[in-house]
Write a protein that binds this DNA or RNA. Structure first.
Lengths: 231, 231
DNA sequence: AAGTGGTCTAGACCACTGA
DNA sequence: CAGTGGTCTAGACCACTTG
């Protein structure tokens, strides 16, 4: 058999037709089978391309109803959330880490809610500062579920950050994230080495292993911090 | 033929093995073919599951080298960036829109750079405010390439937001995004109806159609705004 | 050089859903 | 209820990379 275009080529070609205006939002595309014949590949290949474009938010597909360009193409960029150490080292800086506190406590209601818990339970609270070239990069206030991750108590969190240990030792299956902005109070300003009143970038993240909450974290970053994404 | 598990089932099963600790970061997985036999499906199905898990940042795959759990599983959540109108209406609020200015001008160097342009060229600059239930929701400062999208000049931007018109009439093929925080100056505070000194959430986004820049936007959101993602 | 993943083809059957 | 997408099987060949 001769070999037709690959599914990525088909994906790019369809996307190009939309981008160039040959297909407009709301328009219906040919059936997969017709496209396959036109392009000289099998329906499987067209299907794989369509699957990717649907996931990207460009197309809508319905059985019997066919494939359409979404009337409102959305953007669904993936943002990459690496381990903090790698984020810092990836920018060519030297990573540093300072543990501030690590103690047992019962988290406040909003943290329990974020972890989808209804009953209060004791957890490990870890506050720490991540540094890039010796300068404050990210301050984190983290709650770790002792019910899900009792082993964390045996870890020397002065040497390994909770972030790194958890990532390597308790993989999650799902998570939730919230990005926002906040004003630095005097306390945060001191921790992050910026002026009080500065605008901080706030990342909140919760991870679960199935239904079990692993950890909830609130991280503050000083001015200059940004999340980037290409799509 | 009997029908084995689907690729999503295989994906969830592998993820569960990692989550449960049966497979730890750094561990090597069986060959696709062995897994296929074990699970009672074909290698194609296993391959599709592995492709998804690799894209999610959980696995690393190398020809000849096999499949491993990433030593540093990262998170790659997709953030959904809808048209502003839908973002507002999706929260059950009434959408409003007010055009502030729309005029031709040459963008400053940082905007040209963000659009990957080397030579200055005249563009359309549109400043507008999006409202939710009559309250300021998002203020945007947008540059639209007249070389790529000359038709924008014939649009009544007092009635349709540039955001919405572009999305429906000039689909992009790639984009870049930057999320950060900034302090509200007196001018921004007035526009957004918040206090000067408040922390604003800043979204910058550029889109292209192939190599042609379509638009670059900088949007400011008042306190309370957040970007959410589940993964 | 051999082992592993990457992808395609060809065909089948299933699952929705809209005419 | 017929047409469209959704997915699987079975098999082949290619591409990379590491032992």
């Amino acid at each position: 058999m001769s070999r037709g275009p690959g599914w990525e080529a088909v994906r790019d070609l369809i996307r190009a037709r939309v981008t160039a205006g040959a297909l407009m939002p709301g328009d219906r595309l040919p059936r997969d089978e017709d496209l396959a014949v036109e392009l000289g590949c099998t329906r499987t290949t067209v299907q794989r391309a369509m699957q990717a474009l649907t996931e990207d938010g460009l197309l809508e597909r319905r059985r019997r109803g066919g494939t359409r360009v979404r009337p409102d193409p959305v953007a669904r960029p993936r943002v990459e959330i690496p381990v903090v150490r790698q984020e810092v080292e990836g920018r060519g800086a030297v990573y540093g880490y300072r543990l501030e506190t690590a103690e047992r406590a019962v988290p406040p209601g909003e943290v329990l809610a974020a972890m989808e818990l209804t009953a209060p339970e004791e957890m490990l609270r870890v506050c720490a500062l991540h540094l890039a070239d010796g300068r404050p990069w990210l301050w984190e206030d983290r709650w770790v579920s002792l019910a899900t991750v009792p082993d964390i108590l045996g870890v020397d969190l002065g040497r390994v950050s909770a972030n790194e240990w958890l990532v390597r030792n308790r993989p999650w299956s799902r998570g939730a994230m919230r990005l926002s902005a906040a004003v630095a109070g005097p306390e945060e300003a001191g921790r992050l080495g910026c002026a009080a009143g500065a605008a901080l970038f706030v990342t909140e993240r919760t991870t679960w292993a199935g239904a079990l909450p692993i950890t909830h974290m609130r991280a503050l970053a000083p001015p200059g911090y940004a999340v980037l994404s290409r799509f």
